[in-house]
Design a binder for these strands. Structure first.
Lengths: 240, 240
DNA sequence: ATCTCGTGCGTATGTCGTACGCATGAGCGT
DNA sequence: ACGCTCATGCGTACGACATACGCACGAGAT
């Protein structure tokens, strides 16, 4: 009989252990001391405030007042911790308005953008990880349900949702970059400095037109603009 | 007088040294031995074949037949190396067809997708880094020029391009995830296993409809579908 | 012949994830 | 009341990894 190591990878019937833990219904009520919930919550706090790069097992342990190795009793490794964080951070999807697919998708998209603004590290972590945890899947379900009652096929709904999702992710990524202090000196000035009209004419024209100079109205407008394009395109498909 | 350390951050007049190096016109013709070009090329090869995680300074040095510390004569640090890679890897943007903005943007989007397929690590590295190198900016210029002659404002062109760009990035990211061996066991089966109709009804319906089961035609279709939606939306704006 | 400087690199340091195994104490059966 | 068992916490140790620092060598200039 093998030594009972905590959390090893012994077969659980094809299903990876991390996922099994995530989908277990009755969550342990968190006893005294360390617990998965507390660890994950502290990790999310660190990543939110100081970025994913600042999240190390030692810093996390320090914040929890424990020793680094203690964390491994509750989390198999850092990668599993990230998966747990990804499940927990977004919270529940928004309540969708009942007046049609378009307002519903708009609400969904804006709520998702809010998640990415609150937890920018999600963008880094989800890259390269198909969504399989309850947290992310509940958002996907919510987004799909926005299109209930339309004439779109299931496959089409999914693709529409992915298009909206990718758009939101991209916008949030740009937003996150601009938030966290540009590459020293403002972006517009650097663009204007390097871009010569003879080499990159279209970009030079854009730069001259002030496209890269953050105006007072820029913030939400590009989001609304792009989303309108996408939803207009969906509308074309629906009214064909 | 200070000791002449190679590549320190002494002021070069507001412009970060890395960018200045990138925009210098006359590239040194690469002498014998190590050179920036050779280092960057080798780094790109490693990242292409084994992923960004496999790119360490030691592995890179090993591949070049030199000692790890030798690389630092040509590259300030790993972050600068990544910026150089980002500039070099994409190559020049595609030749765009002259018959209108829509075919031009389609060609541009497909070419960009090709870049991401060839160098998936670009998706990870560009996150959190505003594009300022000649390589990336030439792609942006190319994409903007696709809309030359339309009635769109410069700001609108830029936002359209960002929407297309974000879409391509998102699709490529999904593609990269699916390529590199799903999370053990196929994705569709895991979704079907966890998603219960009473909890996530829309997702369950999608799963039952086979949305997650990779069909023979799936590959390029979702790309074409999403792109069509976006460009249809742009078309609505243009014909208003 | 000497001096200077660009290039390569050996050594060392600090950080990080984590394997391994001991210690402790709570809950349980007797 | 008394030991048994096992979950939990953690001290130590190891192998990546990025990179600071300074020496060595050789080519071109004086």
């Amino acid at each position: 009989m093998r030594k009972a190591r905590p959390y090893d990878d012994r077969v659980t019937g094809e299903i990876p252990r991390t996922l099994q833990l995530l989908w277990e219904e009755p969550r342990r009520p968190a006893a005294r001391g360390l617990s998965r919930e507390r660890i994950v919550a502290a990790a999310v706090e660190i990543a939110d405030s100081d970025g994913l790069g600042a999240l190390s097992m030692s810093r996390l342990a320090e914040r929890l007042g424990s020793a680094p190795m203690s964390l491994y009793r509750h989390v198999a490794n850092k990668d599993e911790l990230l998966t747990f964080m990804l499940d927990a951070a977004p919270g529940p999807p928004p309540e969708l308005p009942p007046d049609g697919w378009r307002p519903a998708l708009e609400v969904w998209a804006r709520a998702l953008r809010g998640v990415y603004y609150a937890h920018p590290w999600i963008l880094q972590v989800t890259a390269g990880r198909p969504p399989l945890d309850p947290g992310q899947l509940s958002w996907l379900d919510s987004g799909l349900s926005a299109m209930d009652g339309t004439s779109l096929s299931h496959a089409q709904r999914f693709e529409v949702l992915m298009t909206v999702l990718n758009f939101v992710r991209g916008e949030a990524q740009i937003g996150a970059v601009l938030m966290s202090g540009e590459p020293e000196g403002d972006y517009a000035a650097l663009i204007a400095h390097f871009v010569r009209p003879d080499r990159l004419p279209a970009l030079a024209a854009a730069s001259d037109a002030g496209v890269f100079t953050p105006g007072p109205d820029d913030a939400g407008d590009s989001f609304a603009f792009g989303l309108t394009r996408i939803l207009d395109g969906v509308n074309v498909l629906l009214t064909e």
